[in-house]
Amino acid sequence: MSAEVAEKQKTTATDWEPKIVALVCNWCTYAGADLAGISRLQYPPNVRLIRLPCSGRINPFYIVKALQHGADGVLVSGCHPGECHYISGNLSARRKFAFLENFLNYIGIEKDRTIFTWISASEGDKFARVIEEVTARVKALGPAEKLVKKLS
């Protein structure tokens, strides 16, 4: 399928499915996703996981780049505060995310395009729930249009 056709389907098909990028930390959320898998929990297949060492390692640029290059939504998840494998990576990250989330919303990017959460290694059920929730929210927004790069 050519990119053009794909583009058309994306915007016209009623059964459009969003593409969601999830940036997750290795120690908690990725393990949580694993647990969800082992427990055979069902959740929508719209999410592409990208594993990083720590939520503190998530350059906010990754989030913006994902939106620029075709993600309809971005989920960011790390360990709960106080449970970071590297002690405080997620606490530094939380400030970056707060600035970024507020800023993106301020310039007019829909609030639900970028979603932040904490999921621990034992929260397989929460992982499934969050994916469900995020997918529903992004679906409700429709395909991303702002910030999306089109080749000139």
Partner: peptide, 30 residues
């Protein structure tokens, strides 16, 4: 969010070079 003003106080670290356990996190889902 962080009760900080850029470059006003040498002793007060900038927001992205510091954190508090109880930083606001209303934007976090669940």
């Amino acid at each position: 969010l962080y009760d900080h003003r850029a470059g006003v106080d040498l002793e007060k670290p900038s927001p992205l070079a510091s954190f508090r356990e109880d930083d606001p996190e209303e934007f976090i889902l669940e």
